[in-house]
Design a binder for these strands. Structure first.
Lengths: 391, 391
DNA sequence: CGGAATTGTTGTTTGCGCCACCAAAAAGGG
DNA sequence: CCCTTTTTGGTGGCGCAAACAACAATTCCG
């Protein structure tokens, strides 16, 4: 069965995790703020922070005198000597990046593929890139684990890729294979769900407990759902897979009615351009295509809004371009087809995070594991004069 | 901000609550089972159970020798000396019932109304019924609180009824008024959400983490959503309010296309019959009406299933009758309009709980409060020779 | 009837957060 | 410029909850 009753160890773990969580989400915080925020005693906070420092998870620094009365409180911030490796395999290549506990990408590598890669190919290439990246990292950094964002249906509990149409995979035990190849703990999850998490914590969905996230890419539309402050996967991982829902009455899937290719075809037929270029060209052209697509998108959104009543809808990728170019039309269409109260409560905004979105998201589950038990990172023995050991 | 870090008191509260939770949900459990289930030490369980007994929340009894080796372990079950009062105001009357921690109704009273009642009327009638019911209860029982299930949009955090079309209320601070009038703690929530919880814990949704619940009553269709094991309300409490969603392409709300009145009109026009009678009459008549309604219902369900990917759909009230009479048609319609994978994962079943559904559900939030802090119930002083004091 | 298995019971131990006290560091006021 | 006020860090002792260990009780089985 599930975990259960808590003993004293659990208290320590929970409190360490709570501090790590606050520092991760809100950036640098003074010890006095942590005291207020957690309700714990000053001395307790001091002891907990000391342990996190000893494990290389946070660092303390002197505050810049802020003009407040009283003794200054040391500022606690995420350490950059503990990193997470984020991996994003796609049909045309795989990206590996080093992400800090604070949620920023410090280094990245990419290896392209000519054809759709097999699972084995992705595992070996990823392992190579991981080794390469680790060699480039400064001495003394430790890797907390590997987080993978994959465009597929995933059983997150054990990192099994159930179905990846784009990659042609079925039932690939990706987490297990990568863990074996690299010797590091690995988490695997759906890319859109992870994108939703990233936008929720660090982007356009900050602080929003009920949101729908939709991302439009070259290969289709993916989405993620956050309800009651928690990511929702549904029984089989299909919750929030809005690309396959029906946007029109005729029963055409949304991701076949609203496509990036249609936008590209209208302004630069056949060209291979990125979203920035696409938006620039659309700005110069007439808006009729985005208008048509905005209407279909709006109808589909209305259906979702009626059912889950979110307070915000975040649109990324080329859907973000549509949202930026047709805000009134989109809002009007939603208002027309959604019920009045939920429709009024749902604010439609464009995603804020760009290229790093999936990498930041991919690191999140690893950080979750860290927050659940910070003691999994060994204490650094500063007893001798040697540097802290890696791995 | 939210609660936070945990200290030793929190551990004790959590563990007491965990035991109470297990006993509440799974019925009678032996102390050895509790030990295994919680992972706590035998001696710890003994101490915790002793405290719950002292607070009148559980009782210990001798097990019937089960044919197992080893010393018999005392059975812990919910006490019936601590009760929750469940209240269900409707447009034509208000029901007050006494519910045990085990989730069964032991007594009930109802007062009818001629016309739609004002908030004040409901409060005074409820207060009277509460007093009457308490007078009938045996000596020594204590009331943990009042839980209200109301057909309205509710802000559960403070029990404010935001909008109750059927009752004609707007922004009625029902929890506050009832708490003042009765001197007991009061929780208020939407009736359909509470019904969903009741079915999930004690009915057709037992153990299901992702489910949709829909209930059809004389005044319309209400629903509740449980995702990831938690009730989902959405930003404004509209999540799961499926009655207002569109079941057909023409934009007619589901609860106007699928109605109880249509069924009644087909078999006994104008008659005032209950669901049991209605189902019997339908059994004798032709099935064409239920078939039409099953199709519309199926289309609406398909839309919901595509978005939230539940593993079960529970249908109550007259929708349960439709589900029982047209299982194949309903399943076929869902299969036709839902995507294949989520459609296959969603099992459509009839609700199991009958008339007590809302009352059991209404008690749940009160029990939640009890589980969150069992120490809110005072210790019974058995030091003297007097009985335990009430209130 | 005796051994094995399981669990309740009791007293002791361990570890975590709290508390009280003192010291340190900044702001403000005369 | 010094002194008071305010806020926070640091330290040692304390209380408390759960774990642990040893023993007793109860049942099954041969």
């Amino acid at each position: 069965m599930k975990p259960t009753g808590s003993n004293l160890d659990a208290v320590r773990r929970h409190n360490l995790g709570r501090i790590l969580d606050l520092v991760h989400r809100q950036g640098a915080l003074s010890r006095s703020v942590l005291t207020r925020e957690t309700g714990l005693n000053r001395s307790t906070i001091a002891a907990l922070v000391a342990e996190l420092v000893a494990r290389g998870l946070v660092v303390e620094s002197n505050p810049d005198t802020e003009g407040v009365v009283g003794r200054p409180s040391p500022v606690v911030s995420a350490s950059d000597t503990t990193l997470i490796l984020a991996v994003n395999p796609e049909f045309d290549g795989v990206t590996v990046a080093a992400v800090t506990l604070g949620g920023s990408v410090v280094d990245r590598l990419r290896r392209g593929f000519r054809s759709g890669p097999s699972v084995a190919r992705v595992v070996t290439e990823t392992t190579n890139l991981v080794a390469e990246l680790r060699a480039r990292l400064p001495e003394g950094v430790q890797i907390a684990g590997i987080g993978v964002a994959v465009p597929a249906l995933v059983r997150a509990s054990d990192g099994m890729v159930r179905l990846a149409p784009r990659l042609g995979w079925v039932d690939a035990p990706l987490a297990e294979l990568l863990a074996e190849a690299t010797g590091l703990p690995v988490t695997v999850d759906n890319d859109a769900s992870l994108g939703a998490r990233a936008e929720r914590y660090f982007g356009a969905g900050r602080g929003i407990d009920d949101l729908i996230y939709l991302n439009g890419g070259a290969s289709g539309i993916g989405g993620g759902l956050v309800l009651g402050g928690r990511p929702i996967r549904g029984a089989g991982g299909y919750a929030g897979e809005f690309g396959h829902t029906f946007g029109t009455e005729g029963g055409i899937a949304l991701e076949r009615a609203v496509t990036r290719d249609a936008l590209v075809a209208a302004v630069a037929p056949g060209a291979d351009i990125d979203d920035v270029e696409l938006e620039r060209l659309l700005g110069e052209a007439s808006a009729s295509i985005t208008a048509t697509q905005a209407e279909v998108l709006g109808r589909a959104l209305a259906g979702m809004i009626n059912i889950v009543n979110p307070s915000r809808v975040v649109l990324g990728g080329f859907l973000g371009i549509i949202a930026a170019r047709e805000p009134e039309l989109l809002a009007a269409t939603v208002a027309k087809f959604a019920l009045v109260p939920p429709g009024e409560q749902a604010e439609i905004v464009r995603a804020e995070l760009g290229a790093d979105l999936l990498l930041i998201g991919a690191a999140e589950p690893v950080i979750d594991r860290l927050i659940a038990d910070p003691a999994q990172i060994p204490l650094r023995q500063d007893l001798g004069d040697e540097a802290a050991p890696e791995k």
